[in-house]
C-alpha cells in the first residue's frame, strides 16, 4: 500500500486530507497550535505574519458559507492572500476537468488549495498532481472526510472536557452520508476516547460502521445515556420521503434532540452541531439555544483550528 499521501517522507504534514491515519501526536500538536491562535482572535490586532506572501485558493466545488468563510478569515489572520473561487458557477460547468482547473490555478502561483468537492477522494487526486511546494487542505469531500471540522470538534470537546480518556460521545443522525461523522470518529478513537457511539436508524448507518470503532444504537434514549458529548448531524431535507426516511416528523420523534432526551445524558453534557442546523428536524430550538449548546463556540474555534492547520502546513 502507498505511503499516507498527506505526510511527507519525514512524517510531517504536507497536506491535510483526512484525520484517519494521522498519529496522535500530530493531532495533539494541531490542537495545541490552535490553542495558541485562539488568543489571536481576541486581540485588537488580529493578524500574525505566518503566511505573509502566500496565496490561499478557496476551491469550492460545492456551496458552503461557514467553512469557506472561516477558512478565509483564518488565512487573512495569517496574512495570506485569499482568492475565493466559486467553481460550481464557472469552469466546471463549461466542461473543464478537475485537474485542468487545478493546473490553471497552480499557474497563478497558489500555495494552498482549500478544496471542497462532492466526490469522495477528490482532494487526494489533486494532492497527487500538485507541485511539491503546493499544499492541499480537504474542506469536505463527498461522504469521506471533513478533517478541519473534525479537528474543531475535537478542539471544542477538549476545551470543555479536557480529557479524552474517559469520554463517552454520541454522534446522532445521518451517519451514512456524513463526512463530519467519519472525521470525528477517527479523531476520537485516535485520541483515546473509550466509547464512541453512533445513533440512528439502520437506513442511515453505513455497512460495517462498527469497524470504525463505534457502538451502534438504534434507540436514541439508550444511546444518549451517560454521554458527555452529543453531536447532532445535519439531515438534508432531500433525504425525506425517499427510501431512507418517511418524514421529518417521524425522524424528529425518534432521533431529534429534545431537552427531555438530553436529560438522559450527563448533567454537564455538551451539545454540538456542525451546521447548518435544521431546527425541528434533528434538534429542538430549546436545546440548540440552551445552556448545553456549544454550537456557536464551535464556529469561533473553527477559525483558530484552520489557522493552526494552514500555518503548520505552509508556515514561514
Amino acid at each position: 500500500m502507498q505511503r499516507n499521501p498527506q505526510l511527507n517522507a519525514n512524517g510531517e504534514l504536507q497536506h491535510l486530507l483526512s484525520i484517519e491515519g494521522l498519529p496522535r501526536e500530530v493531532l495533539t500538536r494541531i490542537l495545541d497550535t490552535a490553542e495558541s491562535f485562539a488568543g489571536v482572535t481576541e486581540r485588537e490586532v488580529k493578524t500574525v505574519p505566518l503566511l505573509r506572501g502566500k496565496s490561499v485558493f478557496n476551491l469550492f466545488f460545492e456551496p458552503s458559507t461557514r467553512t469557506r468563510t472561516t477558512f478565509e478569515i483564518a488565512a487573512k489572520r495569517l496574512s495570506a492572500d485569499v482568492i475565493n473561487l466559486n467553481i460550481a458557477l464557472s469552469s466546471q460547468t463549461k466542461g473543464e476537468s478537475l485537474l485542468d482547473t487545478v493546473a490553471n490555478l497552480s499557474a497563478m502561483h497558489a500555495d494552498i488549495f482549500v478544496v471542497r468537492h462532492g466526490s469522495s477522494g477528490a482532494p487526494y487526486l489533486i494532492a497527487r498532481h500538485v507541485k511539491p511546494h503546493e499544499h492541499v487542505i480537504n474542506a469536505g469531500d463527498g461522504r469521506h472526510a471533513h478533517p478541519t471540522q473534525g479537528l474543531l470538534d475535537l478542539f471544542t470537546i477538549r476545551h470543555y472536557r479536557k480529557d479524552f480518556s474517559r469520554l463517552t460521545a454520541a454522534i446522532v443522525g445521518d451517519v451514512l452520508h456524513s463526512r463530519v461523522a467519519r472525521s470525528l470518529i477517527h479523531g476520537l478513537t485516535t485520541l483515546g476516547a473509550p466509547e464512541v457511539r453512533v445513533i440512528g436508524p439502520q437506513t442511515l448507518m453505513p455497512a460495517g460502521v462498527e469497524s470504525l470503532g463505534v457502538r451502534v444504537f438504534h434507540d436514541m434514549r439508550a444511546g444518549l445515556k451517560d454521554c458527555d458529548v452529543v453531536v447532532m448531524l445535519r439531515l438534508q431535507n432531500e433525504r425525506m420521503g425517499g427510501p431512507l426516511l418517511p418524514s421529518a416528523q417521524e425522524f424528529f420523534k425518534h432521533y431529534g434532540l429534545t431537552a427531555e432526551k438530553l436529560a438522559l445524558a450527563r448533567p454537564d453534557a455538551i451539545v454540538m452541531h456542525p451546521g447548518p442546523m435544521n431546527r425541528g428536524v434533528e434538534i429542538d430550538s430549546t436545546v440548540a439555544d440552551g445552556p448545553h449548546s456549544v454550537i456557536l463556540p464551535q464556529v469561533t474555534f473553527g477559525i483558530a483550528v484552520r489557522m493552526a492547520v494552514m500555518s503548520m502546513i505552509a508556515g514561514n
Partner: peptide, 15 residues
Amino acid sequence: HDGEIATRLGLPGIP
C-alpha cells in the same frame, strides 16, 4: 463493495 472499506472511504456501496 458495500463494506468496511467503502464506509471508511465514503464511497457509495454495492452490496
